[in-house]
Amino acid sequence: MTDVPEAARRIRSGDPRALARAISRIDDGDPAVIEVLKALHADTGRAHVVGVTGPPGSGKSTLVDKFVREYRERGLTVGVLAVDPSSPFTGGAILGDRIRMQSHALDEGVYIRSLATRGHLGGLSGAVMEAARVLDAAGFDRVLIETVGVGQSEVDIVRLADTVVLVSVPGLGDDIQVLKAGIMEIGDVFVVNKADRDGADRVVREIRSMLETALVNGASPRALSGTGAADRGGHHIAFAAREAVSSHGYGDAHGLPPVLKTTAETGEGVGPVVDSVEAHRAALAETGLLRERRLRNVGYELRGALGNRLLARLGTPDAVSRLDRLAEDVVEKRRDVYEAVDVLFEELC
């Protein structure tokens, strides 16, 4: 892909081989792809990016499969990025999300790509943000990102997605689990999957109760300002409070994010979830919060990219030996850690 304009043209036209190759180059850290990404920049920002996250085995892949079907019935094209973990020991991975999605393999309006985390923590792969941009530039109307099965604190998806669908299932723990900080704070649309199992209604009640409490606690001027509270914690609450005075069908009468039951296996309840995602999308656009979220997310991305570039400078042999000498200084008490960092920082910048 040395011919940048040609590669960009093929990606814009949605050629799956060009998309696939570009995403591999991003994933492999091939610097040659950067020029292509630059050429595509003006074509991005159109797709609505939907994150789907939740614990292992909660049915995320099956739900994504059904979301794709629903979107296709509505005449929209869909790109899917499905992330599974890499082995921390061998670097290998089994990427199995696709098994549930193969019914779309022959549909030209759908592109599905599996990605391994390759050592990246936080529930995503390091390549996923740029891969999503490639799909965006290729003209897909919706980009669905399925995270790895998450625990309590892998919330990176919130820095990438316009709308986060948080999937829970019955039987994972008591009501304290939904009160904990972290994953339960990031949902814009809450889904209780496997709703044919015992305990689904209880999980719905617990999530609603958690959201109500958050709304009460979050209804401060700060939460409504959309700046401070627009950060991770409570961002949906700030949103919901604004939404209470808006009218586009997202959330309930009190401005709470929707909590919906699904049985992904049969597709039951999937339509209303997609309705809610679409209502959230409309609400984000109408209230100006889409721009706010994207500003915040690009801010995170810039910080990350800067950090990576600094770390890359530390990778040169000279820098490594400099770092080693400073480490020795710290151990021998000639300098403290803060002073050593000052020295490094001066030299790197």
Partner: peptide, 9 residues
């Protein structure tokens, strides 16, 4: 996988 490859199944 154990040989370090990424396997899509």
């Amino acid at each position: 996988r154990d040989a370090g490859m990424e396997v899509v199944y």
